[in-house]
């Protein structure tokens, strides 16, 4: 029995570690920029109210995308089309508002566009039995092209009621909300999603498929339907991120916005404990990962390192995160 007990203990330890690790990463990033500020920019504070608001705003968008990506990655998939779908949905929203649709209808159309894009991804992955990486690499271009086509490659300003266009505005001074409503929406959806993943048949199936698709098929799980639903769910969250982006751009839809967002989102999920081999993913971790990614980008801006260096730093972080994931896997399999 001793033989069986040892790896079990390690299992518990690795669970604790993978929950805590993303927080440590975030703290590390915060500490670095805070120290930087103390030493080289003593007259300004890194975590000023202004910067906090900026980070919150960015995190709402990346975090919303990361929610969907968490499910997709947990199911053993990947979605590279997030940035494009976000652009497509923000354009859909702006266009439908501009063409006179009511806010509710416009929102429905936006969510519909996101879900439809996810369905296309899911059906291609399962129907054609293609690798999700390749499918979504293709649809990344398709959806981006679509967004540019319907908008004639223009930014589309549109009027919108306050409730759907001030989601990322900082709360009134002295308000108990602390951060913009968008962040709270993400938090509420995260709680719902975490519950769905943990407590429903659907969630159980997602992890089963991601952990071992052959075993899931052998056990008679509806693998194809579940995967299609997973990508559709991803599209749903991306559409809401599109709504945020419309807020972020001051009531505009922009077909060229957020190229490369998928990398931040995937990095957020992996930093948060998601495994690119599937079967693992944590909603909480992904949100922490998303916060880390946006803090990093803001911190780079704060440190005035410029765009090229910022790219290098983010790139290094992504590789480092995936390396850590691989090391975890390897230790696990030994």
């Amino acid at each position: 029995m001793n033989v069986a007990a040892t790896p079990a203990k390690r299992g518990v330890r690795s669970v604790v570690w993978s929950t805590v690790a993303p927080f440590l990463g975030l703290l590390l990033v915060l500490a670095i920029f805070w120290l930087y500020g103390l030493i080289w920019k003593p007259d300004s504070v890194f975590l000023s109210g202004f910067r906090m608001a900026l980070i919150a705003k960015q995190t709402a968008i990346v975090g919303m995308g990361a929610l969907g990506m968490t499910v997709i990655i947990a199911s053993g998939g990947i979605d590279l089309s997030v940035g494009s779908v976000l652009a497509l949905t923000s354009v859909t929203l702006a266009l439908s508002l501009k063409e006179g649709a009511g806010p509710a209808l416009a929102l429905a159309l936006t969510v519909g566009a996101g879900v439809a894009a996810g369905l296309v991804n899911g059906i291609l992955v399962t129907g054609l039995r293609l690798v999700p990486f390749i499918v979504t690499l293709g649809t990344m271009l398709v959806f981006r092209g679509l967004a540019e086509e319907v908008s004639s490659q223009n930014k589309i300003p549109a009027g919108a009621p306050d409730w759907m266009s001030t989601l990322l505005d900082p709360p009134a001074p002295g308000s108990v909300a602390l951060v913009c409503r968008g962040v709270w929406i993400v938090v509420v959806l995260a709680v719902v999603l975490a519950t769905v993943l943990r407590r429903t048949v659907f969630g159980t199936r997602v992890f089963a498929i991601g952990s071992n698709e052959s075993a899931a098929r052998l056990c008679g799980l509806p693998v194809a339907q579940t995967k299609i639903a997973v990508y559709a769910l991803g599209g749903f969250f991306t559409a809401l991120a599109g709504l945020f982006e419309f807020n972020n751009l001051n009531r505009q839809g922009d077909p060229t916005t957020r190229v490369g967002l998928e990398l931040d989102v995937i990095a957020a999920v992996v930093i948060g404990g998601g495994s690119l081999n599937g079967g693992r993913g944590s909603v909480l971790g992904s949100l922490v990962g998303a916060t880390m990614m946006t803090t990093l980008r803001n911190g780079c801006a704060f440190a005035e390192v410029g765009d090229p260096v910022q790219k290098i730093v983010v790139g290094v972080i992504i590789v480092a995160a995936v390396t850590i994931d691989q090391l975890r896997q390897r230790r696990r399999s030994e």
Binding site: F207, S211, N212, S214, A215, S275, G279, R332
Partner: peptide, 13 residues
């Protein structure tokens, strides 16, 4: 390879 989902719990499997 296909019998069990090794990263899941006993009850899941």
């Amino acid at each position: 390879g296909e019998g069990l989902a090794l990263s899941l719990s006993i009850e899941d499997n």
